[in-house]
């Protein structure tokens, strides 16, 4: 047994004629305008409750904070000075020269270092404001799915990962299984409003309370051939949706294009099949290190270590059995 993580190939085949090609998001943060339409369209379609304390969070224009049980698309706002921008450009340049697979085909990456068509690398701005819409990664090797004891989480025919709220018992095992901190158990009770008077009027019942919740990739739209709500609404097409192969391809093209313009800070996240989760179903074009956007730099599916642990456990168990056997033998002699 090579891995205890799910065999996505076989999962796909299990759907037989229903099986579709694997779907993915490509979120191009270089054209994100931070409008948060994705957050709202997601909430509206999925009837997710309003989040938070209705107070300024202290994080630029971000007031929802992070992905969670009720917020399945989250837009981060990052304000950076010139120093930070230069570092981002330099770190991206290093990725290019290392020929890292996450930054596109080497041929194009090589061209990025120098300017083409007389295009000089842009002057480093004194300031920039990064915006990026985060979402569940729908990993190739999905930790949440691997650890779910009830079969509530499953791999859909689109290669996405979804919770079946009618099966989930709210055990929360998946929460620890996600290397991105995406999936979360939805609190019971009603959503708090800022003041008492608002509580009465705007109080909102929580659907699926007590179960694990995260982006469904709008499974209920996919089955009807529709685009997920966030991608459908995105004004600038920063969120693109399609077959994963096509998304990876356009992501690589876009990053090469930006490199040609001298924007070596551009890099891909989630497109590398050799990363700790086997690549993701949500690919991002970032303009700085992943940590800057609140993304783990090197996510690893926890179950990836299971085979090794399993072997050790088997060894240990064998040892134990042997010891027990020995003791029996020895004891029998007594």
């Amino acid at each position: 047994m090579e891995s205890l993580t799910e065999d996505t190939q076989r999962s796909a085949e299990a759907y037989a004629e229903r099986a579709g090609s694997r779907k993915a998001f490509f979120t191009d943060t270089s054209i994100c305008i931070g409008c948060k339409a994705c957050e709202v369209a997601c909430k509206e379609w999925n009837r997710n409750p309003q989040d938070g304390d209705l107070e300024v969070l202290g994080s630029s224009y971000d007031n929802t904070g992070a992905l969670g049980a009720n917020t399945w698309r989250h837009v981060a706002f990052v304000e950076q000075d010139q120093d930070r921008i230069e570092k981002a450009r330099e770190s991206g340049r290093k990725l290019v020269s290392l020929g890292m697979p996450r930054v596109g085909p080497p041929a194009q990456a090589g061209a990025a270092a120098g300017a083409q068509d007389g295009t000089a690398p842009p002057d480093t701005a004194e300031f920039r404001w990064l915006m990026s819409s985060d979402v569940c990664k729908h990993c190739t090797h999905a930790g949440c799915l691997d650890v779910c004891p009830t079969g509530a989480l499953f791999r859909t025919e689109y290669g996405t990962v979804k919770v079946q709220e009618d099966i989930c018992n709210g055990c929360g095992t998946c929460v620890g299984g996600c290397p991105f901190g995406v999936i979360e158990r939805r609190d019971e009770g009603i959503i708090r409003a800022k003041t008492e008077r608002a509580q009465s009027k705007y109080a909102q019942e929580i659907p699926n309370e007590g179960t694990a919740n995260k982006c469904t990739f709008c499974y209920d739209r996919l089955v009807d051939g529709q685009t997920p709500a966030c991608a459908q609404t995105c004004p600038t097409t920063s969120i693109k949706f399609g077959d994963r192969e096509d998304m990876v391809e356009s992501a690589r093209q876009r990053v090469a294009e930006l490199h040609q313009q001298g924007m070596t800070e551009a890099r891909l996240y989630g497109a590398n099949p050799n990363d700790g989760v086997g690549g993701t179903g949500s690919i991002f074009l970032l303009l700085d290190e992943p940590e800057v956007y609140g993304l783990p730099p090197d996510p690893r599916v926890p179950t990836k270590d299971l085979p090794r642990m399993y072997q050790r456990a088997v060894l240990a168990a064998g040892g134990m059995l042997a010891a027990v056997g020995v003791s029996f033998v020895l004891g029998g002699r007594r």
Partner: peptide, 11 residues
């Protein structure tokens, strides 16, 4: 089905 690990169609 071929969903041997029970994480897809089978569940």
């Amino acid at each position: 089905t071929r969903d041997s690990s029970g994480r897809g169609a089978a569940v």
